[in-house]
């Protein structure tokens, strides 16, 4: 799993040397931002059901045709799966906040995502809309601190970019 610390260690190991001062500096840089990331991860983990449900509702509201017969949100089973997918992205964002990099999203969410959505004939626009809603829904002092919200929004932006 790629993170700042593992990247630093892999580079030092490839050169066969002990961690140098500059290696320790880069870890220090990551640790400095970690407090905000931990806060965002904790808040997201505590509210992931509500956050996902609101995002799901928002995208179905915008793309109402998905409820029509033959579309992706037609039956209750499909509705549950749509909500599960949104929650899946939120969980990966929680992981990315913990790790401090986009490794979990890249490896478990984005890699192969395009092929899967094409094979299952799913539109990506509703996912983008759900994540965009979550992106605008977060509010600085109410939900989490400003710095934590910056970290959280950056990962939502990253996910949206990967889908568009």
């Amino acid at each position: 799993m790629k993170s700042v610390v593992t990247t630093v260690i892999a580079a030092a190991d490839a050169a066969g040397r002990f961690p140098s001062t500059s290696d320790l500096e880069s870890v220090q840089g990551s640790i400095q931002r970690a407090a905000a990331r931990m806060e965002a991860a904790e808040k997201l983990a505590a509210n992931i059901d509500n956050v996902s449900k609101e995002a799901y509702d928002a995208c179905i509201k915008k793309y109402g045709y998905l409820n029509n017969s033959g579309e992706a949100n037609e039956t209750q089973v499909k509705k549950d799966k749509c909500l599960r997918d949104i929650k899946h992205y939120m969980r990966l964002i929680n992981y990315c906040l913990v790790v401090g990099g986009t490794g979990p999203l890249d490896e478990w969410g984005i890699a192969g995502g395009r092929e899967v959505y094409r094979a299952l004939d799913l539109p990506t626009a509703p996912y983008v809309e759900a994540l965009r809603f979550a992106r605008t829904r977060g509010c600085a002092p109410r939900d989490m601190s400003a710095q934590a919200l910056v970290e959280y929004n950056a990962l939502l932006d990253y996910t949206i970019n990967s889908l568009s």
Binding site: M1, M38, A46, Y95, V98
Partner: peptide
């Protein structure tokens, strides 16, 4: 290779749950 953070993520992913106990990582 894992670090303290990715270890928490990998074990949370095994049960498809969020990483919610962050006390060790905060330490």
């Amino acid at each position: 290779m894992l670090d303290a953070f990715s270890k928490a993520v990998v074990s949370a992913d095994a049960s498809t749950s969020c990483v919610s106990d962050l006390s060790g990582l905060k330490a």
